[in-house]
Nucleic acid binder design. Structure first.
Lengths: 347, 347
DNA sequence: TTTTCCTACGAAAACGTTGTATTCTTAATA
DNA sequence: TATTAAGAATACAACGTTTTCGTAGGAAAA
């Protein structure tokens, strides 16, 4: 349990000053070849590594990116994290992840904690409760203090900062259009209440797609659920009731979970997929891929979002002091991944 | 873009010394009631928060736990992280997560990086490549330097440190026994090569369960695959060939992915689950829950593992200097979660 | 011999804290 | 009146770096 090696210890050991050691290790020309070699050899032998914390303090830079997300047991978020991590690593940044559990207070706490010197900037996806509460002081405060912030996925328009989004409206439109192209005309949607931005936008895309085909929107073809991340008990029941005896030939859902839950009940009702009912789901994940039938999805490319978010943040962190403030909103393209839950398009 | 408030700034503003400010804020009796109130009011007004980095440097403690895992897009690992995060938060610790991508070099790099003052200790699940290479110098080095290390799930016995495991052998035994109890007698297993500890142990459990029922082990009932985390292309083919025309009535797999992949082919071969073939899979996740039929699984309670790992680490971090070194290996119980892919036990 | 200029190193400050030691008042005691 | 005690504030060192500035000593130039 020996103490970590520091410049001071090396200096004492080799009987030179701390400055000399520091300079030698950084290959300063001020130090003679001899001394430099001696010091470097010693440092290497005993595996000296500069202390990160001390460096952070000195440079007032941590080279650390803070991520604040609602939850981690969630395929989409993990892919985003993977993207962020990649990009960060490529630029020699570290990553700290904190979870808000969709809780407003915890989100605020996490931000304060990370803002106290631990990170140089944030990548945030807002907690459901925060969106609901419409209280963003913690964000504006961080920004005011000069902390660059990048929001992704669950964002709020008013905050002046970089944003990374997918075009939820376009994505949903593409998904629903695919159902239309394969011949579906009675298409239902399972989505979220409107205060969840992504749910609202995806619903909008659904509506626009139908309208572009001149199809009237039926209110009872739309099911809005409370939560976008879980679906248990009550939620299951709502989906079951919604589908029971409904005369539809297509279903669009804003996430995988709603899709597989719906599929389960459709199965029970003796419907065949894709022949009786075709399904397209937003969010491409493990469930869609391995479900039987495998689900056609609108992939949101979380990894790319993560990479983009990290890129924007790093740009901000490394821009020259005097550069003018400018905020970007980047859109990541969605892709339709065709699988077994939809019919082939006829030529 | 105003500068962050520091003790120094407050001191200048209120025309007192830095020490006075520090003491006032920490409610030292040395400072008069008057001054104390004045300083605290000012600090509160301008939302002063002590700088974490400076504190870390001063205390030579970061109150940060480093997590090093092979990958994050993985349900089990995310549940473990959630557990660690919970426990950490409860004890006022932060969490830094780094990914090795199952790459030995990256694992070493991450450890070195985090060891340079960023964290007080590690929670590690080893990269596949590390296990394969059998090179653990980075671990022993960290431990030698006084960094507490806790390993979980993908561990190696020789390293002296705390460990959190599930009893893979027992868990597999329980799963296979369940198949036996529901009447299966011709049970196959899809597992990994033996150098993956968890695969080896689960295979062992499978064998022991069969032996306890006096059933002979058939070599061609055992399929060993290379990778435990992915299953694509080549791997799919192997599973398909393995199952094709095989006369079995039960199947045990060491993870969900193998299970659903197998289920897909069994479906294709016209087998009904659970009537023709029953399936039990290790690792309880989203796939098992939502698959049709939903899968009976051996749940490994990742969250509990995470909590336990964090608890062990925090204990080490906060034990008195002179306490004797002692290493614990904690076992987290597995649970059988009965679903639709197995038959009911007859009374 | 004196001055100038390198070379090779060291001292010290700074980053933001905290805790120990010290100083300076003022009031109480002998 | 001189001494002491307390109360209230400050100085300083330390955590581990980097960097600016300073300087000793010797060689070259005048």
């Amino acid at each position: 349990m020996k103490r970590k090696l520091t410049l001071k210890l090396i200096a004492k050991e080799l009987d030179v000053s701390i400055s000399t050691v520091s300079k030698a290790l950084r290959d300063s020309a001020e130090i003679s070849e001899d001394t430099r070699q001696k010091i470097k050899a010693f440092a290497k032998l005993y595996n000296y590594k500069p202390n990160n914390i001390a460096l952070s303090l000195k440079n007032r830079k941590t080279r650390t990116i803070g991520i604040i997300i609602p939850q981690i047991v969630h395929h989409f978020f993990t892919t985003v994290i993977r993207g962020i991590e990649q990009m960060a690593r490529e630029h020699n940044y570290n990553v700290i992840i904190t979870l808000s559990n969709n809780d407003f207070d915890k989100e605020v706490l996490n931000m304060e904690l990370l803002a106290n010197g631990s990170t140089d900037g944030f990548i945030v996806s807002l907690a459901k409760e925060t969106l609901h509460k419409d209280d963003f002081r913690h964000l504006t405060e961080a920004i005011d203090q000069g902390m660059p912030v990048v929001m992704f996925d669950r964002i709020v328009d008013e905050i002046p900062c970089d944003k990374v989004l997918i075009d939820d409206r376009e994505g949903a439109k593409m998904g629903v259009r695919h159902l239309l192209k394969t011949g579906c005309r009675k298409i239902a949607i399972i989505t979220t209440e409107d205060y969840v931005t992504i749910g609202r936008l995806r619903t909008k895309g659904y509506i626009e797609a139908l309208e572009s085909y001149g199809i009237k929107i039926e209110k009872d073809h739309i099911l809005k659920l409370d939560n976008i991340d879980h679906c248990e008990g009550e939620c299951n029941k709502k989906i079951k009731n919604f589908l029971k005896g409904k005369d539809i030939d297509g279903l669009f859902t804003v996430n995988e979970l709603f899709a597989v839950t719906a599929a389960k009940y459709l199965n029970e009702f003796g419907k065949n997929m894709p022949n009786d009912v075709s399904i397209v789901s937003f969010s491409d994940g493990e469930l869609s891929k391995h479900f039987i039938p495998s689900l056609t999805t609108v992939s949101q490319h979380g990894e790319l979002m993560g990479r983009k978010a990290a890129e924007l943040l790093i740009n901000k962190l490394e821009r020259p002091e005097d550069e003018v403030e400018e905020y970007t909103t980047a859109y990541i393209d969605t892709t339709l991944i065709e699988r077994e839950s939809t019919k082939k398009i006829k030529n």
